[in-house]
Design a protein around this nucleic acid. Structure first.
Lengths: 152, 152
DNA sequence: TACCAATACATGTATATACATCTAAATTAA
DNA sequence: TTAATTTAGATGTATATACATGTATTGGTA
C-alpha cells in the first residue's frame, strides 16, 4: 500500500518529509505483524526482544544494563520487562556476586524452548513479509544509515 | 551510526532481516528526536499528529473515526489523545447534529496557534536531521513501499 | 577510615498502545 | 413498528515508553 492511502494524505513538504513518515508507518506495520505472530505464545515483541538478546550469551547471564544497550528502543524499561518474563518463568534473576548492584538475568529451560519456537515464527515472518531482494535490502540499509548520519 | 553499533549486534540472518531492524531503529530515533523538539511546548508527538490532522480540515470539524484513519499508528486510541488536548484547550469536542453517535473535534484558536509554532519546529527538524537528497528520499520511499507490498 | 559522587537497578507517574467491553444511536430486518 | 444488528466512541485493563526519583552498593578522595 502506498503511504498516501495508508494515512489518507497526499501533500508532503518534500520527499525527505514523506520518507520520514514512510519509515514511521513501516515500523508500525512491522511491529504490528510481529506482535500478531507472537500473540499465540503470550509474548509481546519487546519481551521476545529481551529473550533473543539473552540467547546471545546463553548459558551465561547478562546484567540489565547490557540488555538495555542492545535494545532497539533505547528507552525501554528493561527491569519491568524482566518482571513479566520472570512471572512466566522464562528468565531467572539473581544478584551479581561480582557487584551487588547488578541484577543478572538468565534464560530458563522454558525460556530457551519458547524462544526457539518463536524465533522460527519470527524469521518466517521476516522472510515472507519483507518483499525486497538482497540488493534492495542492502541499498535500504545504506540509505537508512545515511539518513541517520546526524545521530548523536 | 551503523545499526551494528546502535544495537551492539553484528550477526543478522540476511540483509532483509537487518533492514527490518534498521527500520525499527530509525523509527525509534526519529520519534525520539521529534518528541524532544515538541517537549518545550508540552506536546507529545501523537498529540501533535492529531492537531496536524485537524489542521487539514480547519476550520471544519472532524469526527474521531476520520482522525483515526489518518494516524500513522492505526491502533492509537484517539478519544484518549483528544481528552488531553481538550484539557489543554487546544481542541473542542461537540456532538454531531448529523449523527449523534459521532463526536466532532475542532481546533481552537490556541490549538491553531500552537500548531503553527510547532509545525515550524517539526519541519526544521525533518530538514536538518534527515540527511538524504531528494533522489535518495524518492528511492527510499519506493523501497519501503515495495517492502510492504504484502500489506493487508 | 570517613565521606562523597557515581553507578545499577527498582519504582513511581503520565502518556501511549493494543485490545476488550460497554453504551447510545443509527440502520436493517422481521 | 418493534427487534436485532451495526456503528461510533467512551472506558477498562495490561503492557510499554519516557522520564524522574529512590535505594543500595561501589569507587574515589580527603
Amino acid at each position: 500500500m502506498k503511504l498516501e492511502q495508508a494515512i489518507q494524505s497526499t501533500k508532503f513538504k518534500n520527499e525527505a518529509h514523506k520518507a520520514g513518515l514512510n519509515i514511521l508507518y513501516t515500523a508500525w506495520w512491522l511491529k504490528t505483524s510481529f506482535s500478531q505472530a507472537l500473540k499465540e505464545y503470550g509474548l509481546t515483541h519487546e519481551q521476545y526482544n529481551v529473550l533473543r538478546i539473552l540467547k546471545g550469551k546463553h548459558p551465561e547471564q547478562m546484567c540489565v544494563r547490557d540488555i538495555a544497550c542492545r535494545m532497539i528502543e533505547k528507552s525501554s524499561n528493561v527491569p519491568r520487562i524482566v518482571d513479566r518474563l520472570e512471572i512466566k518463568k522464562l528468565v531467572k534473576r539473581s544478584v551479581s556476586s561480582f557487584d551487588k548492584r547488578e541484577t543478572m538475568i538468565q534464560l530458563t529451560a522454558a525460556g530457551l524452548l519458547l524462544l526457539e519456537v518463536t524465533t522460527k515464527k519470527a524469521d518466517e515472518l521476516f522472510d515472507t513479509q519483507l518483499c525486497v531482494t538482497d540488493e534492495e535490502a542492502k541499498l535500504l540499509n545504506e540509505l537508512l544509515e545515511k539518513l541517520r548520519q546526524k545521530e548523536v
